Computed example of a mutant assay.
Amino acid sequence: MARSPLETEELWQRFHDVVNMTSRELVDWLGVQADLDAPRPGPVERAQLGDAVVGILGKRRTDLTDDDLDAMRKVIEVVETETDGVTKEQILSDERRRHRLMTVGHDPFREAE
C-alpha cells in the first residue's frame, strides 16, 4: 500500500502519543502480565501486538514496514476504544482494561505529557 510521508508522519505521531511505555517497560510487562480473560483483543493477539510495538519502538520512522503501520493503526484503535467516553478513574479501577492497555504499550497510570 502506497503511503505518503505526511500519512506516515501523522500515524507516527498518533502512535507515539498513545504508546507511553518504553520498549523495556513493555518487554517487562509482556513477560509478567497476568492472563486476564479479555474479549478484545484476545490474549494471543494482544501479545503479538505488544511484540510489534516493541519492534516499532526500536525503529526509525523511515524503516517502518506496511506491517508496522498496520500494527500502529491497531494500537491506536485499541487505546481509543478502551479510553473513549471513560473517565480516568474508571480506567484505573478496571484491572482488565488496564491490562489490555498496558499490553499494547499504554500505561493509564502515566500522565500525558
Rank of each mutant, 00 (worst) to 15 (best):
V86E: 03
T103V: 05
V18K: 13
S23H: 09
M102S: 10
R100E: 15
G42Q: 06
D70F: 08
V53R: 09
E25Q: 13
P108T: 09
V18F: 04
R73I: 07
T65Q: 09
V54T: 11
S23C: 08
T8M: 14
G50D: 06
A34C: 09
A34W: 12
T65N: 09
S4E: 12
G58Y: 10
Q13T: 15
R110S: 03
T87L: 03
Q48W: 11
G58N: 15
E111W: 00
W29E: 06
Q13D: 07
P43W: 03
V53H: 01
E111L: 04
A2Q: 14
R61K: 14
E82A: 13
L101T: 04
A47H: 11
R97G: 07
S4R: 11
L69I: 14
M102W: 08
E10H: 05
P108Y: 00
V18T: 10
Q48R: 15
D84L: 07
M1L: 12
L26K: 06
I56L: 05
L36W: 07
F109T: 09
L92D: 14
V32R: 13
T62F: 01
V19S: 08
A52P: 03
R100V: 15
L49R: 10
D37T: 14
D68E: 01
K88M: 12
G58F: 10
R98Y: 08
V54L: 01
G50N: 02
Q13I: 15
E111C: 00
D37P: 14
R60D: 11
A52Y: 02
M1Q: 07
K88G: 05
T103A: 13
G105P: 04
A47G: 00
P43S: 05
E82S: 07
F109G: 03
E82Y: 09
D67R: 09
R14E: 15
I76D: 08
P43F: 01
V18A: 02
E111V: 10
T103Q: 12
M1C: 00
R97W: 13
V32T: 09
V53N: 01
G50V: 09
S23R: 13
L57D: 02
L30G: 05
I56M: 08
R40M: 06
N20A: 04
F109Y: 11
F15N: 01
D51I: 08
E113W: 05
T65S: 15
T81I: 03
P43E: 10
M1I: 13
D70I: 12
T62C: 03
M1A: 11
T8W: 00
P39N: 10
A34H: 06
A34M: 14
D70N: 14
R100A: 08
V54D: 05
R40D: 07
E111G: 04
V32C: 02
T22A: 04
A34Q: 14
A47T: 06
P5H: 02
R96F: 12
V79E: 02
E10L: 14
S93W: 04
G55M: 02
V44A: 05
